[in-house]
Design a protein around this nucleic acid. Sequence first.
DNA 1: TTTTGCTTTAAGATTATTTTAAGAGAATTT
DNA 2: AAATTCTCTTAAAATAATCTTAAAGCAAAA
Lengths: 226, 226
Amino acid sequence: MNTILVVDDDKRINELLCEIFTMEGYNVVSCLDGEQAIKEISENPGIDLMILDIMMPIFDGWEVLDYVKAHFDIKVLILSALVDEQSEVRGIRDGADDYVFKPFKRAVLLERVRRLITEKHNENSCDLICDGLVLSQSKCKVFIDSEEIKITIKEYQLLLLLMKNAPTVLSRDNILSRIWGLEYDGNDRTIDTHIKMLRHSLGGYGVYIRTVRGTGYSFDSEVDKR
Amino acid sequence: MNTILVVDDDKRINELLCEIFTMEGYNVVSCLDGEQAIKEISENPGIDLMILDIMMPIFDGWEVLDYVKAHFDIKVLILSALVDEQSEVRGIRDGADDYVFKPFKRAVLLERVRRLITEKHNENSCDLICDGLVLSQSKCKVFIDSEEIKITIKEYQLLLLLMKNAPTVLSRDNILSRIWGLEYDGNDRTIDTHIKMLRHSLGGYGVYIRTVRGTGYSFDSEVDKR
DNA sequence: TTTTGCTTTAAGATTATTTTAAGAGAATTT
DNA sequence: AAATTCTCTTAAAATAATCTTAAAGCAAAA
């Protein structure tokens, strides 16, 4: 079942939202502030989508959005009273997946949520393809020119993360928290080793894993062949 | 004879439905709420199809749908007053096999039901074949090169689940809930033991059961021969 | 040239899976 | 109803795969 996290400091709206989604058959978790929200997400890996208010105490919605998008694979729908185009633009630019103004219509909200959930499911089951390189999420396999290649789970996760975010450069911190988890306190350099192994596994496609000195790594098919 | 379970809290509609299907020659069982429905299904293995209302007390239709689809091989036709596309889409996505709006036309409903019943019979009578390995659903038997092999029920269920979903990788959680049921709170590792036995039973075909370390298992005939 | 950061290597540590075995429980036979 | 057989579950030991660390070698930037 799909799980939605409702984050709003207004108790009445919070409850209303919970009721709406529960009635619609979603699994609902709720928080009254951003701090709690991040804690909840860190501890509950089942959350698919977050309904996020912007004006909140402690952390405001923007901060939560940033953090969540940098660390988790969760859809974020901003639900805000800020009726100005600027904020909406900012929301989308900063990684929100959708933006709905308060007061909202039940049907509209449900429809947008439904769309995002469907989107997420599709994203998580589709293949990622780049030239002769294919990563199949459902099979948990990687193919090069239709030939399966042997790859470990960490290499697979790394490649998946980099391909999903291509061509964005991801910092080691970012990679670490998304694959190893927030509580992991090991060595940065572990990533390097896995990158090295991944490049090796990818053979000729190894060059698609780009190093950005001082910053991190990215998946980049427009390799500079010089 | 085909058995239909009618689930609707409106007594008049419930009775009407029962009458329609009985007259048409189906075996009919009825329930007035979701809780009863799940109880009925758990105790009566002969049910082929469920006609399910969405708005009901105790468990609503969505919950019943989720539960039933995760645990039983039963076709579900949602019969709902919610005349909105949203719900229909959701119903189908969440595993319902068909969706009919109230008020319904007798002929339409019967036709849809007939189609689903036929579909079910086809699905459950077909053999799953992979090279010399044949799983016959109608016979509840597995053959290797036309020779029946001895296999326990759990091994059979495991093989069936994996073959039906091949080559998708299924997590232990997923396997557990689909074969053992959601309320089962035993050990993850039980699966491993059954996998081991299954591989043994399958002899040379044992290698078709793929382990995806840290993730789960899949049925994969394109074994990596390296 | 010096510094900084990345790559490579290899060995040790860790983790997940497989295997084994034994006991509980269910089903079947006597 | 008792005995027997079969299957499932659990636990623990063995094995295998993978991850992590650390150190040395390189390459790019300052």
